[in-house]
Amino acid sequence: MADTLSFELVSPDRLLMSADVEAVMVPGTEGDMTVMAGHMPLISTLRPAVVDVYATWGGAPSTRIFVRGGFVDVTGDRVTLLAEQATDLAELDRAALAQQVRNAAEDVSLAKTDQERARAQALHDSLNELLSAVE
């Protein structure tokens, strides 16, 4: 299968990635799905997890990106991923991440209001998820 999709990953701050790829594995809230050329037009929300981008289908993913909060828009030969936060796994420092997880856990225990605690907890959980994705 040689048909390609134009894949774009956009965060509020900038356009993170724009490339022609053969397939993208998207972690939707209702389940993971692999999008290839000719996929049905679709809009789905995302759960915090890793997006696998396959420049050529088969074998290992060419790029793995952790995204948090966002949605994906698929139209025919175009995939647009809007993420509130996105981190390329290749650029990720494991030690720094582990430290972030610890900081987040500390924030949870230090939070004064319920709202603060809920937010810190959400951050902690998603960081944990990210950490387990790296390992």
């Binding site: 809230t29 049905m40 037009p41 679709l42 809009i43 789905s44 929300t45």
Partner: peptide, 10 residues
């Protein structure tokens, strides 16, 4: 494309 052909999840 129109809206009708869009699939929504959820």
């Amino acid at each position: 494309l129109g809206l009708a052909v869009y699939e929504f999840e959820p």
